[in-house]
Amino acid sequence: MNISKMLDSAAQYIIEAMTRIFGPSDDAYPAIGTQPFTGEPYKHRRHADW
């Protein structure tokens, strides 16, 4: 009887893992696409210019 409970819980664990792996994605990221750059480019300065 104890062995059947252990096998049942092991099978449930494996089935839940497979459902999570192969199921639909649950990501909640917005579909916004690429954003254009609107800032200033970085200008490297030398130590002598500080």
Rank of each mutant, 00 (worst) to 15 (best):
A17T: 09
Y42V: 05
F22A: 03
Y13R: 11
T19A: 04
D26Y: 05
F22K: 03
A17P: 05
A31V: 08
D26V: 06
S25H: 01
P36S: 04
S9E: 07
H47K: 13
A28W: 03
I21R: 12
A11V: 05
A10S: 15
P36A: 02
A11I: 08
P41W: 00
H44Y: 11
P41N: 02
G33Q: 00
I15C: 09
P24F: 02
R45P: 08
F37E: 12
M6C: 12
I14S: 05
S25V: 02
P24Q: 00
S25I: 03
H44D: 09
W50V: 12
S25G: 05
Q35R: 11
M18C: 10
F37I: 02
P36I: 01
D27Q: 05
S9Q: 05
I32Q: 07
A31Q: 10
Y13G: 12
G23V: 01
E40R: 12
P41T: 02
A48Y: 15
E40L: 07
P24E: 01
A11G: 06
P36M: 01
D8Q: 14
H47F: 15
I15F: 11
E40M: 11
F37V: 10
S4K: 10
A31F: 09
S25R: 00
Y29E: 06
I32M: 06
G23T: 01
F37G: 08
N2V: 12
D49F: 11
G39R: 04
W50Y: 15
P24C: 00
R46Q: 15
D49Y: 12
K5C: 14
A10P: 07
P36F: 04
A11W: 02
G39L: 03
R45L: 08
D49I: 01
F22W: 04
M6D: 11
M1E: 13
Y13A: 14
D49V: 05
I3K: 12
P36E: 04
D26H: 03
S25C: 02
A10Y: 09
P30M: 02
K5I: 11
D8S: 14
S9D: 12
A28E: 13
G33E: 00
F22S: 03
G39E: 02
